[in-house]
């Protein structure tokens, strides 16, 4: 905590205003050079974020396909059409459910793993290295691993369940409209829980030891200390981590691409995948642009309550 408090303060002071570069003229050269040095970053962001947004806005009002762009203006037609399409709106809903479910699941599991890491005496390093690996694995490869585990013919899960005599027939988990989505979520949780565990573990190290000592003297039990000390003090960091995971979850694409291709039917078609298909298979860049913008708005709207919660949790602590 001590560190949490002191570091931002130092930066809050910033450079003493009006301080001049020694040996130079009247202008604050440091700021000037600072701006020059920041320009490439701003340029990069313009290319990667600002320009695409403006470009998409124009595209979304136009009739465009991959070959020829801007073949005439259509007004808000792409927006109204897309909102009217159940396939698109359910893909938005599915993205939201995917993001929330995987975030909640990987946060709960991640906190548990972090607590285990915190307690592990022997082999903490080995444990840390091992759980680092899913995070490092390319998502495409994560998808391949889970495809192998889940395939109906020769997948490990099927043969395991059949050996246990729970199933008599192999089940196509990824081919089932009800089970495909949870299993895509599971693969995502597998990949991202280590990230949350490591971040939570780091946040745990900043909690002051003396509060626990005091609580122990008062006879508090382990679970009681977790619920009334660890969790509330961890809350700001944990919510910040959850926001990050939420944002990442909305970006999911590779897992769906390999595991299910959006199917069966539309069962696993999240927005980023739906939009990709509209653009690649129907070549309708105009509609894809409108949908992309609406998707971005939805991502923002879902993220805002979490950032607000983070501010509240942080205020309550100080």
């Amino acid at each position: 905590m001590a560190e949490l408090d002191t570091t931002p303060q130092r930066t809050r002071q910033g450079p003493p205003t009006g301080q001049r570069w020694p040996g130079t003229g009247g202008i604050d050269r440091r700021r000037l050079i600072g701006w020059a040095v920041v320009m490439p970053l701003i340029g990069g962001l313009i290319v990667f974020a600002v320009y695409p947004f403006i470009y998409l806005i124009f595209l979304s009002f136009s009739n465009s396909n991959l070959g020829t762009l801007f073949r005439g203006w259509v007004g808000v037609e792409h927006y109204t059409d897309s909102i009217g399409q159940a396939k698109f709106t359910t893909s938005l809903l599915r993205s939201i459910i995917f993001a929330l479910m995987t975030t909640v699941a990987s946060c709960i599991l991640g906190v548990c793993v972090a607590l285990l890491l915190d307690r592990a005496v022997k082999g903490r390093h080995i444990l840390r290295t091992l759980i680092l690996l899913p995070l490092m694995t390319p998502p495409i490869t994560v998808a391949v691993m889970w495809q192998l585990l889940l395939m109906p013919k020769g997948g490990w899960l099927n043969s395991f369940l059949m050996d246990m005599a729970l199933f008599s027939q192999p089940v196509s988990f990824l081919g089932s409209p009800t089970m495909a989505f949870p299993f895509v979520c599971l693969a995502d949780v597998w990949q991202w829980t280590p990230f949350i565990a490591l971040m939570t573990y780091a946040a745990l190290q900043t909690l002051p030891e003396d509060i626990y000592e005091a609580a122990k003297l008062d006879g508090a039990s382990g679970p009681a200390m977790f619920w009334s000390i660890t969790l509330p003090m961890l809350a700001p960091a944990l919510i910040a981590i959850a926001v990050l995971k939420l944002v990442i979850a909305f970006k999911v694409f590779d897992l769906v691409f390999v595991l299910t291709g959006g199917g069966p039917g539309q069962a696993t078609t999240v927005s980023s995948f739906y939009i990709y298909r509209v653009a690649i298979q129907q070549f309708d860049i105009g509609a894809a642009a409108a949908q992309t913008l609406m998707f971005a708005v939805v991502v923002g709207l879902v993220t805002i309550p979490f950032t607000t919660a983070h501010d509240i949790a942080e205020k309550r602590l100080t």
Partner: peptide, 10 residues
């Protein structure tokens, strides 16, 4: 925050 699909076509 914006998903990479935003930047893809532009």
């Amino acid at each position: 925050v914006a998903p990479p699909i935003v930047a893809l076509f532009p």
